[in-house]
């Protein structure tokens, strides 16, 4: 294996190890298997996230068309000033898939608004924390592109794998270290994917 890359077998071992650690600390990584037997890691989380532009809303049905609203009795048992009115949420779905041609793991992700609309690339960039944006300008290890998911066939954003091995060749392979954990803790925070310090514990 070239420096910084890993074999598919090693990927699977690291993935199992990561899942054990995730379960141990009640994180949400799951191992998924496609109908054709390919294995990948998945994590989802919904976080409060203010998008830069107000969510562009298409006209809603009742704006232009006459909708029969439900004749619902007044319900006073509802919290009136609810946070839901002011907080927008974004649901992130992360997938880690092995890429045989680059011989590295690839991070796929999608970010959805509450109605299921995918964030545009511009919106994704806008929620990358500022200090990472500065870093991204300097470093070339991450490029976000949209690709068809290799297993699901739906469009997903992808951290382009072309610099992964360069990045990973700079991280020493110490006994007990896990390639996936090292890699994800390096690139994850850019996309709001936090890896707790406890992934660094040796179990």
């Amino acid at each position: 294996m070239a420096a910084g890359s890993i074999s598919e077998k090693k990927f699977a071992e690291c993935a199992i190890h990561l899942l054990e650690k995730s379960a141990h600390q009640k994180d949400h990584w799951t191992g998924e298997k496609s109908s054709s037997g390919e294995v990948y890691l998945q994590k989802r989380c919904t976080i409060p996230c203010q998008l830069p532009m107000p969510t562009t809303r298409e006209r809603t049905l009742s704006d232009s068309q006459n909708i029969k609203e439900p004749v619902e009795d007044l319900d006073e048992a509802v919290v009136q000033d609810n946070v839901s009115t002011s907080t927008s949420m974004v649901t992130f779905v992360y997938h880690v898939v092995y890429n045989a041609s680059y011989a590295v793991p690839v991070l796929y992700f999608n970010a959805y608004k509450p109605d299921g609309q995918l964030l545009s690339l511009e919106e994704v960039w806008a929620i990358v924390p500022q200090h990472y944006q500065d870093r991204l300008r300097e470093e070339r290890w991450t490029f976000i592109t949209q690709q068809e998911h290799p297993i699901l066939g739906r469009p997903f954003y992808q951290l382009h794998p072309c610099h992964t091995s360069t990045l990973m060749s700079q991280i020493p392979d110490t006994p007990g270290s896990n390639y996936l954990i090292s890699w994800m803790s390096a690139v994850g925070p850019v996309l709001r994917l936090e890896m707790s310090m406890r992934y660094g514990e040796i179990i």
Partner: peptide
Amino acid sequence: FQLQFAPLSSILDGGFWHK
């Protein structure tokens, strides 16, 4: 005083609409 409940907000993802 009256007990008031926080309503649920629906959150969908693209996969739901695909399916």
